[in-house]
Design a protein around this nucleic acid. Structure first.
Lengths: 279, 279
DNA sequence: ACCTCAAATGAAAATAATTTTCATTTATTG
DNA sequence: CAATAAATGAAAATTATTTTCATTTGAGGT
């Protein structure tokens, strides 16, 4: 299904001058146009009602109503632009603005993420003897969350968020282990060092980062990229954390989908065991 | 600007049976409904045209046309419906499908989150002597992430993800402290117990949960609700974690925006200190 | 049980919007 | 400079929406 805005622009060439005026008006005033009736729009463009209908038909639509609905729908889809956070914003407004940024980050990440690398990493983790996750500061919680999920699947997973421990663990890894380093900037010394050490010890190394040119990439056998929405307020890579989280969630779900009966039973057992912890 | 879907659900209580039928029909068949004329819709719901107009007015809209346009716009905004994850999906496809769920969760949460409670909690945290965050399992990483951010702001924050430690910390809190319990289900025994203890000791208690009727709400002075997208595959409250994360991010940003010069300098100093840890 | 009143409802009339028809205008080609 | 085809808008025809108003429904009082 092609976007009407796109079609409008594309088909403008084969329109007569009156239709072209309408097309331009719609493209420049989509928001207001949606509130206009067909004759109001026609008057705005100095043309007859029938021409508006013809334009709608040219776009492959039923009529003017259909055009308005489609435009409204497309407007809605792209109207979640957050705008900048100001001192006057309430916390709730900040919440909404940030969410727009999060959505954008997820979308961006969809476009930079290499499907093949992701698939390989998922397989790798699923089949590895042991998976360790390194993160510090901002990325520590992500590492922990990912490890927690893998543990629920019965895998041998471990998050390590202490740079000394990272060095220790790294130096004892063996072939068959997977080490995943998480760093938004890709330049976190300790993480990069740990990953290099892992590689020397024979483990397969993976990095999750926002920047393609960063030191961590050269230390990794596989690189998974996120792309956070560039906004002024995100001093920390606030919104890249969501993409990282989503990335590990997809690996988690992939493994769930490909686990055998016994493994599924184990997952179920975990759930049951946790029921006792609840009211 | 409030979502029409949300308003529909909310105002259903004060509608007569005929209007209620229409509301339900719209909520269950939004997509098809948009293509219907007013009398077609009326017939589908076994009621008169006028009732449809009345419903539109009740929602604060001009009329039926306006209702259709708004619904189309909202549909567009949420039309990235992910569909169910299957065994055949690649990891990348899973990633995309899950993201759609995440977006939905964030939107849902926007509509259930109480702006006033959120504002109060943000102020509370900003001014508290000490903030402790309790989370276990799935919510542990969220607690840790939130604590990490507050620490960067120079606040006295602490995540506690061990049920014994939680009890210990809780029993030593004083007036002026804020305790935040995070539990998707709202039924996690240890968290609820810890929160109750905090309250007894004079601390202000806050809960973050997905369910309004859960035990944790009664243990909290302030309740912040998330609403995850209900999907079959999310065995764990996978997508509610994103909403929780966003919630704490908004509090973080709010505090950043309202901190004085000295505090901003401190934040900046943190950033500089961390530069040494990078290549 | 019966009445009263207010709210809710739908049929039909009134209005408004959209679509079609068709005569006129405008551009293009030989 | 015709001759023709394409483009256009006014008005008619159609369709959709909104308003009006008589009827129904149901709650609360006697």
């Amino acid at each position: 299904m092609e976007s009407i805005t796109h079609k409008l622009r594309f088909l403008r060439d084969e329109m007569g001058p009156a239709e072209k005026r309408i097309a331009n008006y719609i493209l420049n005033n989509t928001g207001e146009m949606i509130a206009l009736s067909i004759s109001e729009l026609a008057k705005c463009c100095g043309c007859g009602d029938a021409t508006v209908v013809r334009l709608s038909r040219r776009l492959g639509l039923e009529g003017y109503q259909a055009l308005k609905l489609r435009l409204a729908s497309e407007m809605g889809a792209s109207s979640s632009l957050g705008g900048e956070i100001t001192r006057e914003d309430s916390c709730y407004e900040i919440f909404k603005k940030q969410n727009a940024g999060v959505v954008e980050s997820l979308k961006n990440t969809e476009s930079v993420l290499d499907a093949e690398q992701l698939a390989r990493v998922a397989e790798l983790v699923m089949k590895s003897d042991r998976t360790v996750l390194f993160g510090l500061g901002n990325s520590a919680a992500i590492a922990q969350d990912a490890a927690h999920k893998l543990l629920r699947l019965g895998l041998s997973a471990q998050a390590c968020c202490d740079n000394h421990m990272q060095a220790i663990i790294a130096s004892h890894l063996k072939r068959g282990s997977v080490a995943i380093g998480i760093s938004h900037s890709g330049a976190s010394k300790d993480i990069v060092d740990a990953l290099r050490l892992c590689k020397i010890c024979g483990a397969t190394t993976v990095c999750v980062t926002n920047y393609g040119e960063s030191p961590i990439v050269s230390a990794a056998d596989y690189a998974l990229f996120t792309r956070s929405a560039e906004t002024k307020y995100s001093i920390l890579g606030l919104s890249s954390r969501y993409a990282q989280l989503a990335l590990f969630d997809s690996i988690y779900s992939y493994i769930v989908m490909h686990s055998d009966k016994a493994a599924k039973q184990a997952i179920y057992n975990t759930e049951t065991a946790l029921q006792n912890k609840k009211y």
